[in-house]
Design a protein around this nucleic acid. Structure first.
Lengths: 125, 125
DNA sequence: AGACTGTATTATTTTCATTCATACAGATGG
DNA sequence: CCATCTGTATGAATGAAAATAATACAGTCT
């Protein structure tokens, strides 16, 4: 399933997994019905504890991207809206704000900010 | 200086300060030569430890936004490039990636992603 | 039956942000 | 000159969260 984690970034491992799987679903690299690596297998591949993977997968279930079939595995599900409009807007706003704060810290011009975003949106979707 | 922090978000306080000051400089709400609230005063205002504010300010000095004048205070300085092009590109890329991961997790359409970003770029700059 | 799956629980370790308590030196104004 | 601001530095303690570890149990599949 080709996931990669970094341990030096401060970004929690379970959150890295959530983010990467989210993007793979978003891009269509993972489609409805696809089965994910099992908790234990992915944990082995990444060299982390199974509990950590399980937590990430649970988060993705809560987020409406995955379905759990006990005894079988985790599968990409039909997208469900698990957040209220307010909650979703609030989280998106926080994400934008966080992004712009880092861009401002780096002194990145607005044009360059848009370019960086657009390039990633086009090249991967 | 109107800064606001939240303690429930998981985002470290010192990082919130760095981000907010960065944005104020980026917007021009803080201009070259302007003096910032002193470490102890801002700490009092925010109800946090002076060390936390000091750490944030130090980070902003490292980032090339502020200058420290011992015994006098912190001031907005002429913007210095303290990061190599590679480092800057790397950090910007990481920020974009993090942003897109959250957007993907929320299932936000590309059009909405751009809209959210553009609205913040226009309304504040 | 055996080997996988997810799930659950409890305890422990680790890491990091934050607080607390001081202390010291430079700058400033009365 | 002295009081009071400023930044800087240090070391210890606290707290919270992530991650690990060790099991155990139940469902599924061949």
């Amino acid at each position: 399933m080709r996931l990669s984690i970094s341990t030096n970034t401060g970004e929690p491992i379970f959150r890295q997994i959530v983010g990467q799987v989210s993007r793979m679903v978003y891009r269509g690299q993972l489609r409805v019905g696809d089965e994910l690596s099992s908790v234990r297998v992915l944990a082995e591949e990444l060299g982390v504890n199974p509990n950590t993977v399980a937590r990430a997968y649970q988060e993705l279930v809560q987020g409406g991207l995955l379905e759990s079939r006990p005894g079988r595995g985790f599968f990409v599900g039909e997208r469900r809206n698990t957040f209220s409009d307010e909650e979703r807007a609030r989280r998106l706003d926080a994400a934008v704000e966080s992004f712009l704060q880092e861009a401002a810290f780096l002194g990145t011009p607005a044009s360059e900010i848009k370019a960086a975003l657009n390039s990633k949106l086009k090249s991967t979707l």
